[in-house]
Simulated scan of single mutants.
Amino acid sequence: MTGELLALASAGCFGVTHFVNGVIARRAPGLTVSLYAQLGGTLVTLVVAVVWSPPGLTGLLWGALSGVGTGIGVAFLYRAMSRDALSVVVPVSDVGAVVLPVVAGLAFLGERPSPAAIAGIVLALPAIWLVSGGGRPTGPGIRYALIAGAGFAVQFLAMKPVPLDAGLWPIVVSRAASVAAILPLVLTTRTPLTLRPRLAWPAAAAGALGSVAIVLYWVATHQQLLAVATVLAALYPAIPVVLALLFLGERLSRKQTLGVCGAAAALALLALA
């Protein structure tokens, strides 16, 4: 499977994860949902690593840094969602998560995408914004959304240096570090630590799928430029939109329709590249 397809598969997994947890977060505190999701992701990767991946120390520090970014990103994204419209905070956090890795790839890693790839990257940024609803970037949750975007950018950037022969243990450390990053926020905000079982199990399962997304993205960065892999993985907001259409009876706005068309055009350009 090519790097482009792996990154798109990662976007699909990220999208389903956020859709499921977004629905659950309407019925329970968002921080608690994020905690259970990361616990589920940690448990699954630990079991798989014990069975199939030999223990080793390679890449563990990068994995831990990525996990801290994940924890900060998820925690502050949910805090932003509690203070502002999803159509505002999701695109702010997602665009922030894309811009920093793209700049790092171009400025520090010496990446030189083709003209078609650059055009696809440039087109993808407003498409991400529009497909999420294209709300105005004002409101009390914007500061948290910007912090979330920085956290997700660290998540993306820190996975790139992890060698593929390191096995899954850096992913285990990443998931565990995300739990460690979220738990103090849960405790200091006096958020409940427990979820009802009928909400806890889906949240954990969605978190496990989020771990699959991280693995797919990690492999994609070793088969494709960091800038391209990050942009493709960050197209995940289109997935909750589609799922909301199918299962929640929601309708596309004109901005979202334009965003979906823009995302399709960006994908075509990146595929040509």
Rank of each mutant, 00 (worst) to 15 (best):
residue 37 A to F: 07
residue 37 A to K: 05
residue 39 L to R: 10
residue 41 G to H: 03
residue 41 G to N: 05
residue 41 G to F: 04
residue 42 T to D: 06
residue 46 L to R: 12
residue 47 V to L: 15
residue 48 V to L: 15
residue 51 V to S: 09
residue 53 S to M: 07
residue 53 S to V: 08
residue 53 S to E: 07
residue 55 P to S: 06
residue 56 G to S: 14
residue 58 T to E: 12
residue 65 L to Q: 05
residue 65 L to R: 06
residue 69 G to N: 03
residue 70 T to N: 08
residue 70 T to V: 10
residue 72 I to K: 09
residue 72 I to L: 15
residue 72 I to P: 07
residue 73 G to A: 14
residue 74 V to L: 14
residue 75 A to H: 05
residue 76 F to M: 11
residue 76 F to V: 11
residue 76 F to A: 09
residue 78 Y to H: 11
residue 78 Y to W: 11
residue 79 R to Q: 13
residue 80 A to P: 10
residue 83 R to E: 11
residue 83 R to M: 12
residue 83 R to I: 07
residue 83 R to D: 08
residue 84 D to I: 10
residue 84 D to A: 14
residue 85 A to M: 12
residue 87 S to I: 04
residue 87 S to A: 15
residue 87 S to F: 02
residue 88 V to K: 04
residue 89 V to E: 00
residue 91 P to L: 13
residue 93 S to H: 11
residue 93 S to T: 10
residue 94 D to M: 14
residue 94 D to Y: 12
residue 97 A to R: 00
residue 98 V to R: 01
residue 99 V to Q: 02
residue 101 P to T: 05
residue 101 P to R: 05
residue 102 V to E: 00
residue 103 V to P: 04
residue 104 A to D: 00
residue 107 A to Q: 02
residue 108 F to I: 04
residue 108 F to Y: 12
residue 108 F to S: 06
residue 109 L to D: 00
residue 109 L to N: 00
residue 112 R to Q: 12
residue 113 P to T: 04
residue 113 P to L: 05
residue 115 P to D: 09
residue 122 V to H: 01
residue 122 V to R: 03
residue 125 L to S: 03
residue 127 A to Y: 01
residue 128 I to F: 03
residue 128 I to S: 00
residue 128 I to R: 01
residue 129 W to L: 03
residue 129 W to C: 02
residue 130 L to R: 05
residue 131 V to W: 04
residue 132 S to C: 10
residue 137 P to D: 08
residue 140 P to F: 03
residue 141 G to N: 09
residue 142 I to T: 09
residue 142 I to R: 12
residue 142 I to V: 15
residue 143 R to Q: 08
residue 144 Y to M: 12
residue 145 A to R: 09
residue 147 I to C: 11
residue 149 G to D: 09
residue 150 A to W: 12
residue 150 A to L: 15
residue 151 G to D: 09
residue 152 F to T: 01
residue 152 F to S: 00
residue 154 V to W: 01
residue 154 V to T: 06
residue 157 L to W: 02
residue 157 L to P: 04
residue 158 A to I: 02
residue 159 M to Y: 11
residue 161 P to M: 11
residue 162 V to I: 15
residue 163 P to Y: 14
residue 164 L to V: 15
